[in-house]
Amino acid sequence: MSAAPGRPSGDGPRWEVFKQDAAGKPHQAVGSVHAADAEHALLMARSVHARRPAAVSLWVAPADAVLSVTAEQLAAAGDEGAAPAHGDTEGAPQRYLVFRKSSHRRAITFVDHVGEVTAVGPWAALRAAIVAFPEPPALAWWIVPSERVSASPDYEAAAWFEPARAKTYKQQSAYGTTAPTRRRRQG
């Protein structure tokens, strides 16, 4: 199953967007954009998902390249899901990025990048990921072929992400109007 309907539209197919807030932090799924190709998707992702700090890198991947499986779906698949050939056609081993979500806490992002595995297909990659990244128990997994992921260019990082830091008028702290009543009492 793909993460979303990916059929082409007037605005192009759907691309999942992953944002990294700082070096050393994981890329996290923040939503999606429609775009004609990867370059366009990165530009859209920058406009939609990086209007404010903090961001240092964006990844995009076509939504139809994402294998998305929840814990509930895994449990329902049971033995069938664990079968070696389930879901995959035989192919050459390739690298898959692994993303997972492990908390029901209030959040602004979905799955986090946790690493990668090499496997002959996305289902085999999922089974490898479950072994490689067991803790804490995952509520949802995303498996994305590495070759389908495009990253924002490093040489653009300053131009893309730094200007947002200077736009302090986008922060509520720029406005001194918390409560007229409180102000009068303080004054």
């Binding site: 998305s68 929840t70 779906q73 029901h104 949802a140």
Partner: peptide
């Protein structure tokens, strides 16, 4: 129980 329903869940 306070769980979130995610895409793919029933």
């Amino acid at each position: 129980a306070g769980e979130k329903i995610e895409p793919g869940d029933w």
